[in-house]
Write a protein that binds this DNA or RNA. Structure first.
Lengths: 344, 344
DNA sequence: GTGAAAGCGCTAACAG
DNA sequence: CTGTTAGCGCTTTCAC
């Protein structure tokens, strides 16, 4: 019941100034450290601010300094995977390092909604923008996205001038295949997707390269390209495992396909990892942890991509780094129980 | 090359006013429709604004009207499920209906980070706040969260005064069980979790109620409470299926546990749905669509909860609705291929 | 080291 | 129906 009368009128810099017996200007500078202040005064001001429960109004602050402490994140999420959450989470953490927050918006893949989202983000005067995809792909930055720094996440932009970050797909292929090779496998299959997306292309190149480096010949009939998902995994698994000379290990394009391979293996009476080693990509814990045995995989770095993108954005804004950097993120191999030494 | 000289100086209401030969006030009102304007003038102003590529500065607008067109969303996400994305997505869509955006922040379950998040959100002067959990639970609203309207999503608040929205767990139990009953099952098991969370309690009550309503006796040894996840599902599945008098159908606490039951069934040579019907809860498509046969389930309404929460928030802000409403959301039964008529 | 004044882009209050 | 004036809360000149 103490001055709380005008509860709606939040305490501002002015109130602090009055209470501390200085001018608003001094409070401002004491808070921001923008110019030298008598240490004593400074301490007093800070204490007063604390006591009064002062909380800065970022909008007002931004009005003058033309910043909003806000970055936009435009994605194409359809929320069936945890990817969006992970990427946003990384973006948030990086933004927090710059006293900023992220304004995430998804377009559901709809051009109309995307345009609306861009407008909204612009109206909020975001300091910069992350243009993100949930699946690694090539994108064209919408021309409306001008007059604001943009960094592309999990996609590469065809129209240049923007930094971008993607997983190192080639390396994923190399690492996964090498992991199988390191256990002694020589007969290694690849269950992949038929679409010519960067992920498929890169991982296959990596697969071939790792085999070549180990002087293992590629058996073309041990590469099965089907649709994605568990269904595609089952198709690929059948193609690979129902042959006389079947591989002893299969590198799967992703965890869902690996799950399909598990199903076929069970059906054929093949035990994992004794009769067949399997490795996936993605590290969707819902799958990798639930499968029996748990699935070894290469984790996709969504969190890291979000983090990198926002860090890069701020670096560009402050002029520390130039646009048009592009980063290839190394992915982590996660060892679980689906890979073992081959029987024979 | 045309006036674009001062590209950084965005066109504002003033520029539009000058170009249209009216005062800024008129432009403001023409834009907002807050007061009557000569239709002709209005049209001219709007056209000018469009031509000049005017985009309102929401911060400035909010400065005067003390709104930010922004709602905060504080969650405890650990991003292994797509839930967060779904809830946020619902929140975004509802916010868009009020020309607002959502500022999502997660605390990773850390009290310290949560406090920081609250501060950040407050500094950004969000118009309201959604306090969300990814797993249905009871929460206590942090005392710092005062001076701003709060709605709780996927949790119920012990300290009153806030509206909240949760799934109707009892109904989930009833609907899932009834679904099995409708196929003719009488020997129905329940694979659940041992923790006394609202979801487990409610679903079990619903399970019992549905059986009672159908005059089917509950066989207590057909209720197995284990840990969650596929592992718990396997344990529960073993407990239920390795008996002489085994149930012909199992209602699983969630999809992951259902996956565990699938694994045990396969191990015991039981075919789904011929020898055993299974139904889950969650509708995690990564699992439900990947399992063979695809899993029937009851979908958790994360999108809807996000949507409801934000709608309620705006209703409270505008005074249309009072705080302290609480909503029980009906969940959708998703029929797939894991339920069939029992053999015998 | 500190203050006073001006103003970011907009809308609300007060005029006509 | 329209315009003028003031001011949201802060930072930034410019002055001392």
């Amino acid at each position: 019941m103490n001055k709380k009368v005008r509860a709606s009128a939040r305490v501002g810099i002015r109130d602090v100034a009055a209470a501390a017996g200085v001018s608003p200007t001094t409070v401002s500078h004491a808070l921001s450290g923008a110019r030298a202040i008598n240490p004593e005064t400074r301490t007093r001001v800070l204490a007063t601010a604390e006591k009064l429960g002062y909380s800065p109004d970022l909008r007002a602050r931004g009005m003058r300094s033309s910043r909003t402490f806000t970055v936009g994140l435009l994605s194409d999420t359809i929320a069936v995977t945890p990817y969006a959450g992970q990427l946003i989470s990384g973006a948030q953490d990086a933004a927090a390092l710059h006293q900023s927050v992220v304004l995430a918006l998804d377009s559901t893949g709809d051009k109309q909604r995307e345009l609306l989202g861009i407008r909204t983000l612009m109206d909020h005067r975001v300091d910069g923008l992350i243009y993100a995809r949930m699946w690694h792909q090539e994108v064209q930055i919408p021309p409306e996205l001008t007059s604001v720094p943009v960094v592309v996440a999990n996609a590469s932009s065809t129209n240049t001038g923007h930094s971008s970050v993607v997983p190192d797909e080639h390396r994923i292929g190399v690492d996964a295949t090498n992991h199988l090779i390191s256990f002694g496998h020589k007969k290694i299959g690849f269950a992949t997707v038929a679409t010519r997306v960067p992920a498929a292309l890169g991982r296959e190149r990596g697969f071939r390269q790792a085999l070549a480096d180990a002087s293992i010949d590629v058996n073309e009939s041990w590469i099965a390209a089907k649709s994605t998902g568990a269904k595609g995994g089952r198709e690929a698994g059948r193609a690979l495992l129902e042959r006389e000379d079947r591989p002893t290990a299969i590198f799967c394009f992703n965890d869902e396909m690996a799950m399909g391979v598990y199903q076929v293996a069970a059906d054929l009476g093949l035990s994992i990892p004794d009769d067949l080693s399997v490795i996936g990509v993605d590290d969707l814990q819902l799958i990798t942890q639930a499968l029996l045995p748990t699935l070894s995989t290469v984790a996709l770095p969504h969190y890291e991509m979000g983090h990198w993108a926002v860090s890069q954005l701020f670096a560009e804004i402050s002029g520390d780094r130039t646009a048009n950097d592009s980063e290839l993120l190394r992915c982590q191999l996660v060892q679980r129980d689906s890979v073992a030494v081959p029987k024979e």
